[in-house]
Design a binder for these strands. Structure first.
Lengths: 238, 238
DNA sequence: GCGTTTTCTTGATCGAGATCAAAGTGTCAC
DNA sequence: GTGACACTTTGATCTCGATCAAGAAAACGC
């Protein structure tokens, strides 16, 4: 019954977000997604795929079903900065914009539910509650961007790396209780460096230092364990 | 006739923004501001006044009538970062938020038109066009924040200072044509440093260097002239 | 398995920007 | 005007993170 929501070869698990979020798929409710289902398409991308190019025409919106998506901006000479990370069930795309302000890239393997530009915009116009939820997501992104500006402008390399690990721990395990955290980093050292305005060498050194100080253990390259979250928080400078 | 819009001792020029923006006072149209007039209050602040404190209850919205307002975040040990600048006719305040995410301070002498929280939110609920305009402003702020993240994370001190001067030139004289620009800096060197994630000494040195290179002239401390805007742009790294 | 490639870590050195220190300039009260 | 104070500039030195340079460890193809 749910299978026909998406014109897709992927099983019904594409709606996993619905379960996790009590009927809400981020800004879009399950009902709204269902109403759009004639137009949506589930797509898979692997890590590194470019989903949309900076300054290119904006073609569609998409909700992140699984995985992590990075938003980047690049200077002419190739210097790059990650300006946002989107986790399930965020909506990708700026309402009513005709051009992408950022480049959108899969940071990990990613499942997206693409929604054509016109279809979503039509629904937003006739649905004030949806418009309000999109406003909320945008305000949250603005808050996150401003928090990150403090990190970029005023924190030391050690504080930046600790702040990043805390951010990931918070996003990938939002309902964890107690002081222990375990997670896989969705980003390579190079991506972390681009997020923090550092070089990969500095990121690597600071991770090693956090490990030496007993704040984290690096179980495998990408797999991190935090024995005591408060200890990590104490390294963040605020 | 227009005098009764604001319960205020300031002459009608408080609506100057209406003229400059063809009936729009930023997100709020002149008509909408008129409809709210029973609740609004025009207030003046001088440079340095704190208009709202970080993590304090959000009490009201306000449109910037004249002057420049800075949004700041501060770490526990006092390190500060400016995370946004608001110029006339921006609306201050995050829709439906109960707590300020940032501290709001007058960067120059400022005139504000304060609008009580409930009054504006009531109007937004019944006016989709207004909601859409607020969404546009928020998306613009998000774009600006992300642009600035690139500056903070990846540009050199010289590029940061040039980018700041370009930003101010653009905002304070949006309709200027040709290559020449003249403007007064609305921020002290200390504020510029907090905006750029630098120290005041570095800001001062880079300004002196831009002057020595003929990119700008520093007529008085705060008064800057740019003989050739394209030359300044070439210093911004992108 | 084994070699190739990519990613990550560690070490040595360098340099941009911070810090420390002092002098110069402007502004305001009186 | 004169003094007090705040802001800005300039100089000397130091330090944190960048850069340069190997290695080590995963990941991948076959």
């Amino acid at each position: 019954m749910r299978k026909d929501i998406h014109n897709s070869n992927i099983p019904v698990r594409c709606m996993s977000c619905e379960v996790r979020h009590k009927g809400m798929c981020g800004a879009l409710s399950a009902d709204e997604l269902l109403a759009l289902s004639a137009h949506t398409r589930l797509v898979n991308h692997e890590s590194g795929d470019e989903l949309a190019g900076e300054k290119m025409p904006a073609e569609s919106y998409a909700t992140v079903i699984r995985g992590v998506v990075k938003l980047t901006k690049t200077l002419e000479d190739g210097r790059q900065q990650i300006v946002g990370l989107q986790f399930a069930p965020d909506l990708l795309g700026r309402l009513n914009a005709n051009e992408n302000a950022v480049s959108v890239e899969a940071a990990s393997d990613v499942n997206l539910c693409r929604i054509p530009k016109a279809a979503l915009e039509r629904m937003v116009k006739s649905n004030p509650a949806l418009a309000e939820r999109l406003m909320s997501q945008t305000l949250r992104e603005l808050d996150e961007a401003r928090d990150w500006m403090v990190t970029l402008g005023r924190k030391t390399a050690a504080e930046k790396v600790a702040s990043f690990l805390l951010l990931i721990a918070t996003h990938l395990d939002p309902e964890a209780v107690g002081e222990k955290r375990k997670f896989d980093l969705p980003l390579s050292r190079a991506d972390i460096a681009d997020f923090l305005g550092l070089t990969i060498e500095t990121v690597s050194r600071q991770m090693s230092k956090l490990k030496a100080d007993g704040v984290i253990s690096i179980v495998a390259n990408r797999h991190i364990e935090v024995p005591k979250l408060s200890k990590l928080k104490a390294c963040c400078g605020s």
